[in-house]
Design a protein around this nucleic acid. Structure first.
Lengths: 202, 202
DNA sequence: TAGTATAATGAACACCGTTTAGCGATGACG
DNA sequence: CGTCATCGCTAAACGGTGTTCATTATACTA
């Protein structure tokens, strides 16, 4: 068996572990290395041949959660000739929708105290899309800059982060407190998104 | 020793346990019943004479976190003759400030999957204050109802929940992601609050 | 004083994350 | 073919966890 072959099977079992780990985590009730090992049908120690620790494994899962969420959010395509403000609005709706469609991934990605993995690029890429849309609005003078004396880049960041905060607020609350007597999830989401956006348009 | 006396000392040790638990939790690194027992200088089993389980103990801590946060938020007093919109705005700023001043309590209260204790009254009381302020704005026609066809109570709830979502968004992100390159915490908070509020005033 | 309720505990159980010594198979080389 | 190194893997152990339970010590009551 050549070294390349060995590497391939190594990668495969690593992938299998991650697959099982994802299943186990999404299943909800607890997540232990021993349970994971049982599911993969190997000894607990074997897992440590592929991951330094449980945290590292969870970080990899976190990375993948980011990827899934990013993919969902990126599915919101800008339409040709669409109003730039409307692009921002639809982007935010897409964010919330994606988060609610993948609540466990959202929890893993954004509601955890785990040290973020270095490769937190996907969400940053997603964040860059938001910035892009916001910048368009500022350029087209559809948004009034909240801090006119600051540069356009600073205002872009500020607005993007504020928008993100708002949508993260609804998303996380709806995920974490499903029992709360929300008057209407849809109306609430719309209200938050519109609130964040409308206050910007001049 | 009378029954009342026995009850009193029982309550005292219960309080002492909770005090130590709070310290231990806020200290940050881990929280185990055995560590707690060591700090209280009793056996781990003794803790179970006062709390059915670790979860129940944490729920009690959660209740107290709610109380602390509520107290902080309630410290925002409405000034006489103050503009009702300004009351809402200051109330929201107070919420964020309180949350950031007590990040661990905030985590315990709002960023946990623990089953909420039944007596989740404090935050509801706090929430009632928000509703009150919002209702005033609607009554005074300073806010335009987002869903005019719905009743005023429904609109009050909707707005209050939307406002809460927005401030919770900033608060939780600032607590959970202190490493993120926020452009400016103050500006961000102001932006989110103003965004949520300004879009409502007619 | 005998009996009883109560507080507290030590020891155990079943689990957890992680490390390590060792085993068997496989391939390389003389 | 025989030897030896390498690699994948595991059983067993270590120290930790939440929780239970039989047992003891203590203090009140009859």
């Amino acid at each position: 068996m050549t070294a390349a072959q060995r590497q391939r099977v190594r990668d495969e079992t690593r992938a299998a572990i991650l697959h099982a780990a994802r299943q186990l985590f999404l299943q909800g009730d607890g997540f232990s290395m021993r349970q994971l090992a049982a599911r993969v049908e190997c000894s607990p120690a074997a897992l440590y041949l592929h991951f330094k620790s449980k945290d590292e494994l969870l970080q990899e899962l976190m990375r993948r959660s980011f990827a899934i969420l990013f993919e969902g959010a990126a599915a919101v395509q800008d339409r040709a000739g669409e109003d730039p403000v409307e692009r921002v609005r639809r982007g935010m709706h897409g964010y919330v929708r994606t988060g609610l469609a993948h609540p466990d991934e959202y929890r893993l990605a954004f509601l955890t105290t785990l040290p973020e993995p270095d490769g937190t690029r996907p969400p940053n890429a997603a964040f860059e899309r938001v910035r892009e849309r916001v910048r368009r609005c500022l350029d087209a003078q559809r948004f009034s800059p909240p801090r006119p004396q600051a540069g356009i880049e600073a205002n872009t960041s500020l607005i993007a982060q504020a928008l993100w905060s708002a949508v993260h607020g609804v998303t996380s609350l709806l995920i974490l407190r499903p029992g709360f007597p929300w008057v209407s999830r849809e109306a609430l989401i719309a209200r938050v998104v519109d609130g964040a956006v409308d206050s910007l348009v001049r």
